[in-house]
């Protein structure tokens, strides 16, 4: 049974300086409010893992939370670059950021391997390309049956997975629907997990038998956080604020306007 905690207490209890943390959500259900609480609590030297480090990691990197990023696509989807990520990589501001770079297929397989309790994942990939030359965690093995060359990467085993979901019931079972991404795998791969939810309900019914359900015993803490995925979206609750993603390009382009936005919209606000 997970602990039901207010978000600040949940972040304080679960996330420590130097942890490897995976905030997941593939465009949908991105745990922005949890990220903002991590920023407010000034966590440092985090290794951030995420397939698509979009605005949420741009904010955490610009705020100085991260010393390493493990990722496969870092951009503002449909808009352009992540300026804070680029400033960290190209100029070391606010601190240098080490990169461990993969493809989506590798990241998805590494989460699955972590959830499966495996040390590594293997798949058909990375043939003839440059990433294996710059990432020593990409290796190749021969299939013992066919001899085919397969790519191999270590399993993701984050200290903490942080996700946002639609609902939890009173017993602490969690439901997510729509574009479900890699969140189930991230939670099952992690040692601890924090789930923010739109609402806590008496019963998850009528859940479809095929909804993604994370049983209570797989989760460490649940924090109610209505609107916790904004400006991304929560299927059945609210839509993606596409105009904010477009506007982020100008906000994040220089350090002063970024810092001012963070002061007004993150540091000055408290979560309940």
């Amino acid at each position: 049974m997970p602990s039901f905690l207010p978000l600040p207490a949940a972040v304080e209890a679960l996330i420590r300086d130097g942890d490897t943390v995976a905030l997941e959500g593939f465009t949908h259900l991105i745990p922005f409010t949890a990220a903002h609480e991590i920023i407010r609590q000034r966590r440092r030297n985090l290794t951030l893992v995420r397939m698509t480090p979009d605005l949420v990691y741009d904010q955490m990197i610009g705020a100085g939370c991260a010393s390493k990023l493990v990722f496969s696509w870092g951009g503002n989807p449909g808009v352009g670059s992540l300026h804070r990520l680029r400033d960290a990589v190209e100029n070391g501001w606010p601190n240098p950021l080490a990169l461990e770079e993969h493809s989506h297929a590798a990241m998805a397989n590494a989460y699955s391997a972590g959830a499966s309790g495996m040390p590594c994942a293997f798949f058909r990939g990375y043939l003839g390309v440059g990433l294996p030359d710059v990432n020593p965690n990409i290796r190749f093995v021969s299939c013992p049956f066919t001899g085919e060359t397969l790519a191999c990467v270590p399993a993701h085993r984050p200290d903490v997975a942080v996700i946002h979901a639609q609902k939890a019931d009173q017993a602490g079972n969690v439901l997510l629907e729509g574009i479900v991404g890699v969140q189930k795998e991230a939670v099952l791969a992690a040692r601890r997990s924090l789930v923010t939810v739109e609402e806590i309900v008496d019963s998850l019914n009528p859940a479809s038998p095929n909804s993604v359900i994370l049983p209570s015993w797989t989760i460490t803490a649940i924090a109610p956080s209505p609107g916790g995925a904004r400006p991304s979206y929560a299927h059945g609750y609210y839509s993606r604020d596409n105009s904010f993603y477009v506007n982020w390009d100008a906000i994040s382009r220089d350090r002063a306007s970024f810092t001012e936005w963070m002061n007004e919209n993150v540091h000055a606000r408290r979560t309940a």
């Binding site: 593939f26 465009t27 949908h28 397939m51 979009d54 989807p77 449909g78 808009v79 989506h104 297929a105 998805a108 397989n109 989460y111 699955s112 798949f123 058909r124 990939g125 729509g178 574009i179 479900v180 991404g181 890699v182 189930k184 795998e185 993604v212 979206y233 299927h235 839509s239 993606r240 596409n242 993603y245 477009v246």
Partner: peptide, 28 residues
């Protein structure tokens, strides 16, 4: 869609699968 995962894509899809399933069963 503005992003690769806008809600419009899921609402109008025949089915929506997880990302590991997408890369393993469908692409690979």
């Amino acid at each position: 869609p503005l992003s690769i995962g806008d809600g419009e894509l899921c609402r109008t899809a025949l089915t929506t699968v997880s990302v590991p399933e997408m890369f393993r069963y469908w692409l690979q």
